[in-house]
Amino acid sequence: MTNSPESNKQPVQAVADERDLRKILGPSRFSAAGFLGADPRRPEDIMSDDAAMLAGLGVDKERLVDTLRKAYDAAEQALGAPVTVSAGCVAVHCGARGKIPSPFANEGTFAKGETVFTLAASGASFSLTPLSLHLIDKHGFFQGKGSPYRVEPDVAARMMGLIK
């Protein structure tokens, strides 16, 4: 592989697609902060980096999604009271009125509300919403670094007890 300027060029369509993707994942009338945070990476790179991280940890994405979904449901059923979902990890759900559409077309709407997972020992935490769970499940998109609903795959896997 050479390092000539030619080899760094992306096809025009790819550049347009990336611009479109950044636009639909940016701030909107439904999401004040958008889904990319301050992450300078291309959305595709965010997804592939996170997929690689999960693979490196030996964690199956479907298993992580399934575990997160069960933990989310357990917290929702506790109606705002703290609930222990794995060793040392406490989840608190907060309901909210309304629905939010997926930033990707034709994927429907998702209930608002979020569950905050906190590891008592370290204070590490992340917030999960039905939409962010859908984005992980369908697209492997854990959101950009700095997004309020970014889920760090390794942190989530550790807090859910999938890795030590």
């Binding site: 929702e76 059923q77 109606l79 309901g95």
Partner: peptide
């Protein structure tokens, strides 16, 4: 009247 979780429960 309340969150979906509360109503369902």
């Amino acid at each position: 009247c309340g969150s979906p979780g509360m109503i369902n429960a």
